[in-house]
Design a protein around this nucleic acid. Structure first.
Lengths: 350, 350
DNA sequence: GCCTATAAATGGAACGTTCCAATAAATCAA
DNA sequence: TTGATTTATTGGAACGTTCCATTTATAGGC
């Protein structure tokens, strides 16, 4: 049953008794072809088991229908949710996105981007790996392939970004903790080479200043953005002379780690130490205790990114506006009950 | 800086003052070219910002270096782990796998496969969506493109499968529960249209029979393979006249749901009701209480699948042997302490 | 010097599509 | 009937590569 040589448009033309041009037209759903002829052709396609060769077609057409999604960590459910949101949109548009994982490795990212470009993608949605050098996308930009960054941005770059309002998210989360009466706060996880980190941490600091938490009441512990990293952060923090009573975590994975480490010490998140996460992954709601987290509407951002991409492709432009998604704090158990007299003074800023 | 028209091999030939053939040879790393010439060419490539057109190349070469990974549910961390295992192998082989998600939808799967085929993939690693019809891969097989199934198999098909020993895993997990003194057992989640389900459920029944659990002591509750499905299963089971005291779950997601539902009722997994999962995702270890689960070495299976695929491509064959991976039970807290000889007939549940 | 062997580089056909310009067939206006 | 118009179909060049068969340059043997 192994077909000898792949059937081409010519084979099916012969089979159907028409010219290759006619077959091509049918393939493209052109209305110029008489319906009977078209169905004759379609039957031949079916009989022969023909598969369309998009590579050959792109040689002439120059715009493929494949879009690449380059993701820095597929094992983080957060990114899977993002991918799912995008796929919803692309599916409706009849586009198949190909996902590639960079595992947070800039070298791998380079390979992946190269391969995607060679494949002739129509556009790229990228969540860049840590340590991506500023010029990493210059060649792609020069080639005129539209790119949008999702969730993460690069320090200096004109590439449009779809991301949540990290600063504000961190601000309201911090405000929430202060409102509960905490006066010694920590920010756990992440590292300063990530713009997202600077935004989230910036929001944390901003809120501390807005509500008069002195610098001595703030502890910043960098760390891996994983459970393990979170565990390490807590250990470091509790070893301080004036340990914090609450922490805003870089993301939910770190928060889960912190809660785990608390449990190891016989402490409970919420009652003994307040924990707030960021991203609000599906798991947050089901954790024990349930995690208070900043919801960023991940799937929604994915959809938005996909829409922007489709528009860029359609209008053949390489620019688009940034889109900063609204965030909101989902309060659950891990941030604990109120602690005494909350004098949540002045209203919230920006 | 937007290059007017894409540079081709001819442009860079002109730039470097050689012929297109020479450039082609350099691109392929042929040793026939004098090193100085080669580096001259490479410089031109760099200067012009040339991107290789793999579509055009495949027109002649007929074997691309892209491998498609078609996955039925990317949001399940289990599959992400599988994908990561495969990527490790492919990266070492200089191949970039493109991942596509079918979201457990056979229609979407059809589209995705079509697109991948049109793209000229060298091979396909597939975890088929539920409800995939038996003939879904006939055309791909006929086209001579190697396929391997990962984790799931189709009822009747000669396509090689890489999967864990589901039957044995379920058997030892059930044996474990029986060994702890349980005499009324349940199997939660999944549905019979999945071969995996039949294997796992089969192992469960087999163990029950081997250890003389009467049919009245076994409860089978089908359900969605998600947390939500697990919650529903527990509710159904506890409403029975003779509710079970322990459950083997179709997978970890179901097990997490069961634990959640227990907690909602004020019961605790491990002490009030024994729960065992399947797959041993990373989260299992960190859950509260930690989940006893059947470890299947997900990433290892991914690596194996990738190896088999590479070998099939290399030897231009479309057949390979199945590979059934070893499993082992990781005992944690959720399956509880030994129940000793106490006759649990005096039920404690609900 | 000449012939041969080896090394390095090259021209041209082919791959499977698309799309333009051209043809053939059918319809209509007079 | 004839010419003009519309509708359906078609041939051929082009797209950017690879690879075979050649050509050209370099070296070696005598």
């Amino acid at each position: 049953m192994a077909s000898r040589a792949k059937a081409t448009i010519l084979d099916i033309a012969r089979e159907a008794g028409v010219s290759k041009s006619t077959v091509s037209l049918v393939l493209q759903g052109s209305g110029l072809i008489r319906p009977e002829t078209a169905s004759k052709v379609r039957k031949a396609i079916e009989d022969v088991g023909y598969v369309y060769n998009r590579g050959a077609a792109n040689l002439r057409k120059a715009h493929s229908n494949v879009i690449g999604m380059v993701i820095n960590d597929l094992t983080n459910p957060f990114f899977a949710e993002l991918a799912v949101g995008m796929e919803r949109v692309f599916q409706a548009a009849g586009v198949v996105p190909f996902i590639a994982n960079t595992a947070e490795n800039p070298v791998r990212q380079e390979e992946v981007l190269k391969s995607l470009m060679e494949q002739g993608v129509a556009g790229l949605i990228v969540s860049p790996a840590r340590g991506t050098v500023p010029g990493a996308f210059r060649r792609i930009e020069a080639a005129g392939v539209p790119i949008v960054f999702a969730m993460r941005r690069l320090p200096e770059s004109r590439i449009p970004v779809i991301a949540p309002d990290n600063r504000r998210g961190a601000f309201i989360a911090t405000e929430h903790l202060i409102g509960k009466g905490h006066r010694r706060l920590a920010f756990f996880g992440g590292s300063s080479d990530l713009v997202v980190y600077q935004e989230r941490m910036g929001g944390f600091i901003e809120a501390c200043e807005a509500f008069n938490i002195p610098a001595t009441g703030r502890l910043i512990v960098e760390g891996e953005t994983s459970r393990k990293g979170g565990m390490a952060c807590l250990d470091t923090a509790l070893a301080a002379s004036q340990p914090p009573t609450a922490a805003l975590c870089f993301n939910d994975a770190v928060a889960f780690g912190v809660m785990l480490a608390l449990r190891k010490r016989g402490l409970e998140a919420g009652t003994d130490f307040a924990v707030v996460g960021f991203d609000d992954v599906a798991e947050a709601e089901h954790y024990m205790p349930a995690l208070t987290s900043v919801a960023v509407d991940t799937a929604g951002l994915g959809e938005r990114a996909a829409h922007v991409m489709l528009k860029m492709i359609q209008s053949r432009t390489t620019r688009a506006e940034d889109h900063i998604g609204a965030v909101n704090l989902v309060v659950r158990e891990s941030s604990g009950p109120d602690r005494g007299k909350q004098d949540i003074a002045a209203g919230d800023a920006a």
